[in-house]
């Protein structure tokens, strides 16, 4: 008995320290970014374009903010609906045929493709083959391909997590699967599905590789045309840092990006916590 409780306490302590370590790493990163980049995160930084020679030594990141938001928007518009349909197919209609298994494996593999490879595909297909050129559209769609499996997998699991008894209850009343889906299953899974979409958006906002070869440039105007190249926060950060343009601005940009991702992830977590709560 004594050794059992010692073991329990030891394990508990291990889990606690693991959690604590993660917390420390995260606060460490944010704290460091605040320290190095906090001073450059001003209203002017958020609302003006980069200036100076080389470009970015002064001024702000407004075009990059806009570019990133647009890229993420296109990615989500392109991936969410097909992702949701695939997830519904996998969870509700797929039973477990060979085809479903194949689809599941494909999605799993897609999720594992390195993002630079997705970028290369986007370059070959959207930029060159479809003739979109280096553009917002090509970059957004490449990001869409990248986040598609994330959306499918989170939505599938959210749907599968809905109480199986509901489906049986509906079936026993002679109610169609589609009716069950739209009156019970999807509303129940909605918070978790949305949370998955937000996570995917965060993933897209932070991804650099796919847009490096399809959409992002060092400097672009504010036109926001679908067929125009764009600036983007992670790429801007990469340039500021790798070309030693301005470390201060690089940290400011990094801080902004991290805050954006934190916001998306925390919203996602809050949403996820709501699944199936409240009786309705």
């Amino acid at each position: 008995m004594i050794s059992r409780s010692f073991k329990d306490r030891f394990l508990l302590a291990t889990f606690w320290s693991a959690g604590l370590a993660i917390l420390l790493v995260l606060t460490g990163i944010i704290g460091y970014l605040l320290l190095r980049g906090g001073s450059s995160l001003t209203v002017e930084f958020l609302t003006t374009a980069p200036r100076g020679l080389p470009l970015g030594t002064s001024g702000g990141v407004l075009p990059a903010i806009k570019g990133t938001l647009l890229l993420v928007l296109i990615a989500v518009l392109a991936a969410a609906v097909p992702g949701l349909i695939t997830a519904i197919y996998l969870s509700e209609y797929g039973e477990s045929s060979k085809f479903t298994t194949l689809v599941n494996i494909t999605i799993q593999c897609m999720a594992g493709i390195p993002s630079i490879v997705t970028g290369l595909f986007g370059y070959a297909f959207f930029v060159v083959y479809l003739g979109f050129g280096f553009s917002l559209l090509a970059g957004g769609l490449s990001l869409g391909i990248m986040i598609f499996p994330v959306i499918v997998l989170t939505a599938r699991d959210a749907l599968l997590a809905v109480n199986e008894q509901y489906r049986l209850t509906g079936a026993a009343l002679g109610v169609s699967r589609w009716y069950m889906l739209h009156r019970v299953i999807i509303p129940q899974a909605a918070p978790a599905i949305l949370s998955g979409i937000l996570l995917a958006m965060g993933y897209a906002a932070g991804a650099t590789a796919p847009i490096m070869v399809t959409a992002a440039v060092i400097s672009a105007g504010m036109s926001g045309g679908l067929m125009e190249p764009v600036m983007a926060l992670p790429y801007h950060l990469y340039i500021l840092f790798s070309q030693h343009i301005s470390m201060e601005k690089a940290y400011g940009t990094a801080l902004l990006l991290v805050l954006l991702l934190l916001f998306l992830n925390i919203t996602a977590l809050l949403l996820k916590g709501r699944q199936g709560k409240g009786g309705y």
Binding site: Q165, Y166, A172, G174, V184, G276, G279
Partner: peptide, 21 residues
């Protein structure tokens, strides 16, 4: 099957309340 299920109702072992009023 649906028309049969409508005519033959079923109540299961675990009470199920659908997530609504």
């Amino acid at each position: 099957a649906a028309s049969i299920r409508r005519r033959v109702g079923m109540v299961f072992q675990t009470p199920v309340a659908l997530p609504m009023s």
